[in-house]
Amino acid sequence: MNVSIIGKALLEHLQIVFTGIAAGCLVGIPTGSLLRGHKKVAKIVFVIVDIIQTVPTLAMFTFVMLIFGLNNSTVIFSIFLYSLFPIVRNTYVGIMGVDQGAIRAGRGLGMTKMQIYFQVELPLAFPVILSGIRLALVSALGIATTGVLIGASGLGMPIWRGIQTRNMSMMLSGAIPVSLLAVLFDVLLSTLEKRLSR
């Protein structure tokens, strides 16, 4: 197993994860924001994303596979579904937690609703939202690893091959990078969160 193969697997792994999480943000942040002020709808949405979150990975792959087939798209879509729970919930909590005084100040100064959302609410809620993204991202790294079982690429492949061929170094060449990635993203995003919340 040479470095270029691991490098390629790593890039594919990141591509799968980021595409899924990006989709999760694109859908999750607006959804979480729109739920503000609609407590009943919020409850229903939370139940739905919570159920999605509870489905075991392989079962999820099975369902999604029916639509996308045996490839990376199935893994990406599954990651997207799993990421909804932390991102929607944290966006909702973050937006709800914005100081009413700040919103009133924004209104009083003559900001439109959109200006208040983008210039006041979203920036102030962002540390909380980021924390949701971090949770989603770290667990997505793990989900992407199991993607190898349904024929997806990524760092799961060297691990799986290593297991099948009793090749310890091959297993580690996938396991070590994926673990390091998880730790790295966790630390980076936590630091960013802390710096952003004043």
Partner: peptide, 20 residues
């Protein structure tokens, strides 16, 4: 209302300033 508010100064208690 938005035009009106922009033409009137407004100062409020405590969290008047945006912390970010």
């Amino acid at each position: 209302p938005v035009e009106l508010r922009r033409s009137i100064g407004y100062v409020i208690q405590e969290i008047g300033l945006f912390p970010h």
